[in-house]
């Protein structure tokens, strides 16, 4: 029984690799489903923007509050802007945006594809000679790769604004100094570190969600299971890959730890 489970896990992993690679390479092969891509960009990007703005605003404000409180004990309150900037641009912005994106777009992808499996719509595509990976997976992967970095930049900007609001109106610091501190941290290393991650997170979230959705079996319970698995797996993979990417990027960009 155990050996069957191990075999099944290896087979699932292999299927996942095949799907995610074919989904990605599909970007460069005909036919191109541009209408589906625009639809997905609208759903995943524009549709997620409000929630990401809201979450980023409060994260920026909470971060600024915490740092102001702690740094004022040390007499270093003027560094709030700098620490908020580095934290948001390098780490908190990309990860928070990716997590919110998973909850909204990832769950949506998994449940949509899952219900298409259960409703035999994916079978219908195959019968009509349409490759479901090209038609369904590739537009979702590409839209996530495009839209998650855009959302991350928007989220970062909003979080920095939230930090500004707390620093100036609650912590009574200079707004000019806050923005000049932010300007100081907007160097290539920080910006590169924060913008590389969303591309990879977007690819991972879309691939995992598509795979889980297309693996749906067994009615409403199966759909619930695959959607939950898509979100949980994506969250875990984002957190782990964030650590690995941070380690690699710090090394590449010459930061000493």
């Amino acid at each position: 029984m155990e050996s069957i489970k191990i075999k099944e896990s290896i087979s699932n992993l292999q299927d996942f690799y095949i799907l995610s690679i074919r989904g990605l390479t599909g970007i460069f092969k005909r036919p191109f489903y541009s209408k589906d891509l625009i639809e997905q960009m609208d759903y995943a990007g524009a549709g997620s923007s409000v929630i990401i703005i809201l979450v980023s605003l409060f994260i920026g404000m909470a971060l600024s509050l915490q740092l102001s409180a702690e740094l004022s004990i040390l007499g270093l309150k003027m560094y709030t802007g700098k620490v908020v900037g580095i934290s948001v641009i390098r780490e908190i912005g990309p990860v928070t945006t990716a997590l919110v994106f998973t909850g909204r777009a990832g769950a949506g992808i998994a449940s949509e594809l899952g219900s298409m499996i259960l409703g035999h719509q994916v079978d219908t595509l195959r019968v009509f000679g349409v490759d479901p990976i090209k038609k369904l997976v590739t537009p979702r992967i590409l839209s996530s790769i495009i839209m998650l970095p855009v959302l991350t930049i928007i989220g970062d900007a909003v979080a920095l604004f939230g930090g500004y609001y707390i620093s100036v109106f609650v912590s009574h610091q200079s707004g000019t100094f806050y923005w000049s501190s932010i300007k100081d941290v907007l160097i290539f290393e920080n910006v590169f570190s924060g913008t590389v991650k969303p591309f990879i997170f977007g690819y991972l979230i879309a691939s995992i969600s598509c795979y889980m959705g297309l693996s749906t079996k067994g009615g409403a319970m199966g759909l619930r299971k695959s959607t939950t698995q898509a979100v949980v797996t994506s969250i875990i993979v984002i957190i782990i890959s964030d650590f690995i990417l941070t380690r690699v990027l710090l090394y590449m960009l010459g930061f000493s730890v």
């Binding site: 719509q121 079978d123 019968v127």
Partner: peptide, 15 residues
């Protein structure tokens, strides 16, 4: 092979 057949799935499977 599939061109030989026309299939209607349960409940139609319409998009």
């Amino acid at each position: 092979v599939r061109m030989n057949f026309s299939i209607v799935f349960q409940e139609g499977a319409l998009f």
